[in-house]
Design a protein around this nucleic acid. Sequence first.
DNA 1: GATGAATGAGCCTTCATTCAT
DNA 2: CATGAATGAAGGCTCATTCAT
Lengths: 221, 221, 221, 221
Amino acid sequence: MNETAEPIVKATARNRRVAGMDPEKRRQILDGAQAVFAAQGFDAASMSEIAAVAGVSKGTLYVYFADKEHLFVALIERERETQKAAVFDALNDDPDVVRALTRFGEGLAHLLTRDFVVSAHRIVIGVAERMPDLGRDFYESGPKLGGYRLAQFLAGKAEQGLLSLDDAYLAAVQFIDLCQSTLLRPRLFNAMREPPSDDEIHRVVASAVAMFMARYGAPRR
Amino acid sequence: MNETAEPIVKATARNRRVAGMDPEKRRQILDGAQAVFAAQGFDAASMSEIAAVAGVSKGTLYVYFADKEHLFVALIERERETQKAAVFDALNDDPDVVRALTRFGEGLAHLLTRDFVVSAHRIVIGVAERMPDLGRDFYESGPKLGGYRLAQFLAGKAEQGLLSLDDAYLAAVQFIDLCQSTLLRPRLFNAMREPPSDDEIHRVVASAVAMFMARYGAPRR
Amino acid sequence: MNETAEPIVKATARNRRVAGMDPEKRRQILDGAQAVFAAQGFDAASMSEIAAVAGVSKGTLYVYFADKEHLFVALIERERETQKAAVFDALNDDPDVVRALTRFGEGLAHLLTRDFVVSAHRIVIGVAERMPDLGRDFYESGPKLGGYRLAQFLAGKAEQGLLSLDDAYLAAVQFIDLCQSTLLRPRLFNAMREPPSDDEIHRVVASAVAMFMARYGAPRR
Amino acid sequence: MNETAEPIVKATARNRRVAGMDPEKRRQILDGAQAVFAAQGFDAASMSEIAAVAGVSKGTLYVYFADKEHLFVALIERERETQKAAVFDALNDDPDVVRALTRFGEGLAHLLTRDFVVSAHRIVIGVAERMPDLGRDFYESGPKLGGYRLAQFLAGKAEQGLLSLDDAYLAAVQFIDLCQSTLLRPRLFNAMREPPSDDEIHRVVASAVAMFMARYGAPRR
DNA sequence: GATGAATGAGCCTTCATTCAT
DNA sequence: CATGAATGAAGGCTCATTCAT
């Protein structure tokens, strides 16, 4: 699982056409696609509307992306790139476990409840049955990778005697899930129209950290 | 789906048309719809295929359900009814908290990772942007209600001094989430093609219970 | 080379859909397709225009024919069926070679210069590069088969001592070509807008018969 | 192609635009167009592919040719020029009728069964309905002119008492058709993928000459 | 009441043509 | 002049929905 490489879909290269692709226009198209896909889902989004929202002609869409699916995959890829680094920084520079987990957890909760991130999850989940590769790649280079990264951090702390773990990966995912309790699910089902407040996130993550430390925190002498 | 006018989910009565609706035929249609929606998703599922799989004519579909969306909503409703009762029985008849939680958690994990349940979640999540009412209703009468029910159970145990809780609902959702750590997400993204084994569920739920009890279990003297 | 069987395109069966295809409507569609294909050629003909001319909806087109190419192939098949038997009758009931050839030749010239037959030839020739199977099948079950049938007739007469042939098939094709000299080519290139008159055909075929008999007619003692 | 206004073929002058048209580049474009039109037919050939094969930009195409149709017409014109002279030389320098006809006939058969010539015929025939002017011009300055030229030659020989003709033009076309019997048609329909061998051409033309001489050869005393 | 043939709006995609650089 | 990115009209095809039988 290489963090930098790992193309979501093998044919990604086909998204990059011959010469003279204007990166600015590409971005413009992806912005339009993001808006329309988020609002309509994959199937209900129409290439015409994407073109209109992006401010380009339908023909131009097909100069930059081979078809609707490639456009969508490129969009998902871009989003993941955008979000990746942000969260994990919190893990690497704080010797205090509780503080590191709190910062990480709050960053994660903020990220995963943002409008666009929720939309992207909805869409990928919605098409996962028909586009299993996309679903799997998204999962593996997103949530699963995140779990591994956190597991590594936790294992390091365990080696220092600061934590007591049976299964670092399970512990990591447990913490990640706890940070989203009562927050993610209503967002995914569109039962909570606004991202949670900072206070709410703070409260949930504090509880998650408390729970995590109660279980794995104090190495018993 | 128009959000302001005619709430689709509440309007179920409209599904029951004139007189002689054969409940058996209705069930037959829903069975076909279940198979097709699960395999294709909402948009890719075609009414023709549903009619064919259900063994009725397309015209008959529209006698029993006003349109594709109403059919889908009715299907989701039926599924929720089917699943609701099953899980919560575990809570009411066991005075031992750990045993009750374990039974409840394992039942829940089994249920939520079953093929059809995962499919239903995928579809509802996938259309949640376009059908917010459906998403909200599904969430509120499913996950949220489940959280409340478990919270009630936990609050009862707290009153008996068996648990020490700040926020019963948050604790309930935390437990529910922990029971699905490493299990639900790969299923939703179609990165795990088979439901998890009993052993795996057992292991995850045991860890969830341990975590829960470590945090909320010991009543402070 | 079976005269009755030999499907032009192997997948012809796919033209015949499940149940309840109204043969009258099928004919109606083929009539519309004939008009539009003849006027525009294969590529320039649009399915929308065919539907309009046929007086059916576009959707109906696709109920009866899988796609544009299948519709076209079915049309060509129907035409060939329509025309097949007509010409060769002249060969079987006349003991006089000159009279038989004259009747056959005139019938052939009439047939092959008719508007629709010319159109069909133009279209098949026009798409032969991209649809080689169609071109080949058309040729083999049309012109080539015709050559064989005439060759059989000529060989029979040769056995009776009425003709003297080296190569019956070559002689047959030569006669067929002579019957169309100055008639077919200008029609194919659309340089002659009307079918030739009976007189013109009579003159050309008489000359063809004379030429044929001069070469193959009198067995030299 | 509008038949009444602006005859396309005659309007060739319009292909020559402003000043500095590079004849070399024009040739280069026509070469590319020839390859693509031959391989795809008129409609399926794309201007983009022609530009790519010709090694020029799409914009340049439109500097040299007003549109796709003009480009195609110019190509057909060039081909006709290229081929014209070649065949008729055989007629002028041989006092022996049989030898002259044989050489002419073999040259003609070779020419008309060459890949590119067959392709050109296919395309012109294929679009003759939509571009009647092109079809007529092609016919008149090609096959028809050829017929007249041969007719003139034959008439000369008749005056010399070497042939006995009723209708020199009909006789000429008959001979031309006989030279292609069994050769041209399967090529046009793409049922014969390679040009015929020299031997095959030799055999067919020999039979054509024999037939022609049997009919028109012996001046009646 | 059940049927399924018919409808037609709408979708994705292509490509001849234009025009700013 | 040459370029090739951009355009947008039009094409083939699908499918939710209707309605005559």
